[in-house]
Each structure stands twice: as C-alpha cells, then as structure tokens.
C-alpha cells in the first residue's frame, strides 16, 4: 500500500493546493483561477492569483515539506521519536538569531537579511549541540539531552530580548515566532528552493544507512555503515532543511515532530519512503494551516503557526486510535 499511499498523498496535496488557490478574501470560481493561470494577460485577478495566492501556497508546501523531512531524518538518526528540529534547539537557535536581528539590527539592515540571520542561528546552534555532545562520535541520547538544554537556553535569550525591546519590535518578533507565510513572494520561494534541492537527494542516497542505524549502532557497523560520517551528513541535511524553513516562515513548531509520525503510520519507517511521505504530510499540514489563517477570520489574515497544532494534533489522535483498533 505504501507506493500508492505516496501517490495518494501527492494527489491530495495537488487538490488541496488547487482548493487553496480558489479561496481567499472572496472565493474565486475554479474556471476563473484556471483562466488566470493559463492566460494571465486576459484576467483581472492575475495579480491575486499569481502574486498573492500562488507564491504563498508554494512557500507553505516547501516549508512544510522541509520541516517534516528535517524531523523525519532527525528522528531516525537519533532513534528517538520525540526528536524534532524544535526539540533539539535548531529552531530555537534560529529564532534567537532572528529576534536578535529584529531587536537590534533591523534599524541598520534591510529585512531581507532576516532569513540569513535565522539560518546562521540554526547553523550555530546545530554546531554547538554537536560539539557539546561530542564524545568519541555522536551519541544520540546525549545529542537530544544537550539539544533540549540548548533549546531552553536560547528560548530564555529570546524571551529576554523580547522583554527589553520596544513594543513594536516585540510585536514583529511575536508574529515571527508564531510562524507565518504572510506576504510570501516569489523571491522567497526561489530563496528556499536550493535548500531543499540539495539536501533531499543526499538524504535519499543515505536512506539505507539511516535504516541500518535505526537498528542500533552495532548492527549498522556490522552491516558496514560508516556510522559517524553518515550521521554527520544526515544531520547536516536536517539542519539545512529546518534552518531554511525557519528562515523563510519563522518558528512554525510542531510540524517537524508530528508530520514524520503521521507519515510513519501511513508508510512505515523505511527512510526511502518515509522522507517523501513526511514531506507530503508536512506540506499538507502547513498548507491547510495557512489556508485557515487566510480565510477563517476574514478580513484578518492570521499567522499559520496558530493553526498548525490545531490541524496536526486531531489527525494524529485519529491515526493513533485507528492503528490501535487494527491491532
């Protein structure tokens, strides 16, 4: 069922993107949307479809996919189902850097640098987590514990910065921390794309190593897997994916944790299938969260982050319930 599941998820994602493209401040009939897509010059809603809805939908899909894949990779290399980019400090490192930028540097530098700041934060905190937990290689449980500690410390730093910065910067920081796809533009889509195009093939190439490591280090070693190298490469992929997502959409939490679990319940823990399935599930979650933010409380446009947990959690409970009954 797994191959068909991935296909089904892809179809569902395409249909959802289509639905999202038809909904907004005013619902647009699908034919009109199609008209604007195929013949932009003849349509009076071209701007709304091409410049407002489409880039936002594209970014939602990419960000959701990146976070979910980052989570799936991380969960498999540290062999801990509770690991996710938010839990081990990558997201919070990025958040601290972003808030630091908003509070102290945004008067001197253009906001276009914000993604770079966030990315740098993600990278620094990943390096910190790795070096602090290093002891003859990377021990997964040490990695998680150090990561949780670092996440708490950077979280405290973020709170402190928000408290000492003025109201307006604090408000921007709050919106950013919630995670939002508001005002996504094509340049954001172009900006995030390389960060997915590079790590995804690498991580798929190392999928077998990850599967072997999931059986335990000694088994993996017996199977001839260069544990340290594979683990470092996969970790780097995870950091790049999570860092990119956070850089372009802010602190969308929960997707990286829950999407891989949802995907695993659908296709199993085999990495070559889990990664694409997670990507699709993550994309769906963020896409619907943003759709809700856009249309549920009109005329307000709310950050997608508010709805991510609200959408992910019920699905998760439903899946848990279903698999329990099957047993």
């Amino acid at each position: 069922m797994t191959k068909s599941t991935v296909l089904l998820l892809s179809l569902l994602l395409a249909a959802s993107a289509g639905l999202s493209l038809c909904l907004g401040s005013f619902p647009t009939p699908p034919l009109e949307v199609l008209g604007a897509l195929t013949a932009p010059q003849n349509s009076d809603i071209t701007f709304i479809i091409w410049e407002l809805r489409l880039p936002r939908i594209a970014l939602a899909i990419l960000v959701g996919a990146a976070l979910a894949m980052a989570g799936a990779i991380l969960q498999s290399i540290v062999r801990n189902p509770l690991a996710s980019p938010d839990v081990i400090g990558i997201t919070s490192g990025a958040a601290l850097a972003a808030v630091l930028f908003l509070a102290l540097l945004s008067t001197h530098f253009s906001l276009h640098w914000l993604p770079f700041a966030a990315m740098l934060g993600a990278l620094i905190s990943a390096l910190l987590v790795i070096s602090l937990s290093w002891k003859n290689g990377i021990n997964p449980s040490r990695l998680v514990l150090v990561g949780i500690g670092l996440a708490a410390a950077t979280g405290a730093g973020t709170t402190l910065l928000i408290v000492i910065s003025d109201d307006a910067a604090a408000m921007t920081a709050y919106v950013w921390l919630t995670g939002s796809l508001y005002a996504a533009q094509w340049k954001d889509v172009e900006g995030i794309l390389p960060w997915l195009l590079v790590p995804v093939p690498i991580c798929l190439a190392f999928a077998r190593h990850a599967d072997a490591m999931a059986l335990g280090d000694s088994v993996a070693e017996g199977l001839g897997v260069p544990i340290l190298r594979s683990r470092m490469i996969l970790l780097a992929c995870s950091v790049a994916l999570a860092g990119a997502a956070v850089a372009f959409a802010g602190g969308l939490s929960f997707v990286g944790l829950i999407a891989p679990h949802l995907a695993a319940r659908l296709v199993g823990r085999n990495m070559a299938r889990l990664v694409p399935a997670s990507a699709l599930v993550g994309a769906l979650i963020v896409l619907y969260a943003d759709l809700l933010g856009r249309v549920a409380f009109l005329p307000k446009d709310l950050p997608a982050g508010i709805f991510v947990a609200g959408i992910g959690a019920p699905f998760f409970v439903y899946l848990l319930h279903r698999t329990r009954r099957q047993r």
């Binding site: 407002l52 939002s180 856009r294 005329p299 307000k300 446009d301």
Partner: peptide
Amino acid sequence: GLETQPNLEKIA
C-alpha cells in the same frame, strides 16, 4: 485586517 498583518488580498 490588522495593522501588523493587513490582508493584502482584501486590499487588492
């Protein structure tokens, strides 16, 4: 919508 996140589509 809100001053911090005005609804661009509505404006359009």
